[in-house]
Write a protein that binds this DNA or RNA. Structure first.
Lengths: 342, 342
DNA sequence: CAGTAGCGGGACGATTAGCGTCCAGCTTCG
DNA sequence: CGAAGCTGGACGCTAATCGTCCCGCTACTG
């Protein structure tokens, strides 16, 4: 645990080092398997543009790793040896990004970010998910966007770390759902306000008590300022949510015994944005509070899921199977686990 | 030997990023020892410009390694931990550049280039010295410059690897000394011609047999084309030479027994540009052939010495003590050894 | 309590590096 | 002998980087 691999350290100090290493490794590797190959062919094989490849080749040539002849480029003895020496590290260097790509393909996502570690055992990993999540959210934001956010500890951590260049005077943060029985610092309302405060955006609260009678529910929904927030939720272009284990969430939200029994019977596995899912991603149950509906999830342009820890891998897989998430931010352990159950 | 450290690999694969790593480490380290420090102070301490430092600081802050307060910048817990984790690798990351700086200061040189390895045992290191030497020479060249070169295997390797962007139509390569009894492929004449051929520059040969009588010597020096080359040598702005062990060189050049004995008696240790030096850098003996004199060495703007291998460390130190070299290109083992004897 | 030194961060123009793109000249191979 | 594929050069556009200066603020110090 303490003898951290130097690659992990380097990733912090020089974040793009690993990517560049990967790129150059791929180039050398491709030349190795090709024997002798020309620049254009190489560019096509590696899906790089001719010019960027050329810059890399110049560097590699400068380092004496490859030679240029009239028929194309070949690895030098030095280059071949380097590739061989690099072999043991390749798995590690490529580990996370390969994981990201694997998860992305398996669940048909637009983007996957995997941070190192396991949130179940490492506070570091949790923080990294928060940081990575906030970065993803920042990148996804366009002027005028309304962002609907859920609650939860991961969401709170994300909110606590977001930073923007310039104040987002043109954006809104709204809670995706009314009160869901969480303690106040992890409620969607709190998170929306924290996000707004830290980014200079505006926000709205949605105060709808849990467990209302149908009649009371209809009444409160007629309230203008509830109506207004719900309308904003309907128009949200971005939705950010955590993913939880069904039973844990049910307990945390103090569902009544009957409901819990029913959830168990139906095979509830995961929870996200107030819905419970079974292992196939089918919706089992809906929390009784106002706000985001499934149609809104489908209408949103970017749905971002945040969750980490090996124990959540299966739940993540279930929610991803539901099929409406676009971006996943998770950690190594959860990603591996999700793949197993995908 | 075979389980190479990944840092060695990275130095080859991503040398640019390793430098960036060094820079960022230095910044973090400086902040650590300063406790809290402002940008300007930091820039002055690290000898960086304010703006470049600032870009780096932004990245490091983005990585959560440092925090910015009203009184200056401080490392975060993350940053301190990173620095601690990095400690075991620092020596290795900085190994060569620290070595370069140490040698540079010890012998008062303008520039020192140290390549990894030991030429005594590694063919790779020899080639790297050649490559590095050719790069240094290219960088030192200005239009119109005359370059005087010596012979030797290291010089030959350098010549074989030099490359230039555009042909040096305005430069001359001349042998620094007439024949010095080396086999033809390592003679200064050959090297000058090879360098010229590979760079598009022009060259002159200097054919002066060894061991001439004083009379014959005076006669040959009156020869117009000898005279002409010697004049060019006098005007050389750059001198490039190898450094040898005195006894080895004496033997290779088949000096007569008397002279060798005399060299030994006088404590000859090193040889460079036809002169023999004792351990204090004092000139013991001069080879009897035409060409470069000590005055010319002093007049030259840039004197570049090339030599590697632990066994040559002491000789290198002796020549550097002579005090007229500006740039040294060597390998790790020789540099370490030279420091011991400096 | 007022003055000041030192702080971070904003701004902006000049410079440069990076990149897409196309072309010339060469070698090799069919 | 022609076609294909190769390298390396060239060039203009764009985006990033950098040097430089300035502003407002804070926390000391006298």
């Amino acid at each position: 645990m303490h003898m951290q691999n130097i690659l992990h350290i380097q990733k912090k100090l020089v974040p793009d080092l690993v990517q560049v290493m990967q790129k150059r490794y791929k180039i050398l590797h491709q030349i190795l398997v090709s024997g002798t190959v020309g620049r254009r062919t190489l560019a096509a094989n590696l899906d790089l543009t001719e010019r960027t490849l050329r810059s890399e080749l110049d560097i590699l040539r400068e380092q004496g790793l490859l030679e240029t002849g009239t028929t194309g480029m070949t690895l030098t003895e030095s280059g071949r040896r380097l590739l061989e020496e690099l072999e043991p590290f390749v798995k590690e260097v490529f580990g996370l990004s390969e994981l990201e790509e694997a998860v992305r393909l398996k669940f048909g996502l637009r983007k996957v970010v995997v941070v190192p570690g396991d949130s179940d055992v490492s506070e570091d990993a949790k923080r990294e998910i928060g940081r990575a999540g906030s970065r993803v959210l920042s990148q996804s934001l366009s002027p005028g966007d309304i962002v609907a956010v859920m609650g939860g500890t991961t969401m709170a951590r994300m909110a606590a770390q977001i930073k923007v260049q310039a104040p987002l005077t043109d954006n809104w943060f709204v809670p995706a759902r009314g009160g869901l029985g969480e303690s106040v610092e992890y409620q969607a309302n709190t998170i929306a306000s924290e996000l707004a405060k830290r980014t200079g955006a505006r926000y709205r609260m949605l105060h709808v008590p849990d467990h209302l009678s149908e009649e009371a529910y209809q009444t409160i929904m007629q309230e203008p300022n509830v109506r207004e927030v719900v309308d904003m939720i309907r128009r949200a272009r971005i939705v950010v949510h955590g993913i939880g284990d069904a039973i844990t969430m049910a307990r945390r939200r103090k569902l009544d015994a009957d409901t819990v029994r029913e959830l168990l019977k139906d095979g509830a596995l995961a929870e996200a944005f107030g819905y419970y899912f079974d292992k196939n991603g089918a919706v089992i149950h809906r929390m009784a509070t106002a706000g985001l509906r499934l149609e809104d999830i489908e209408a949103a342009e970017t749905v971002i899921g945040l969750a980490g820890g090996r124990s959540k891998g299966e739940a993540i897989a279930a929610v991803l199977r539901f099929g409406h998430d676009d971006i996943l931010v998770t950690d190594e352990a959860a990603a591996e686990e999700a793949l197993k159950h995908g």
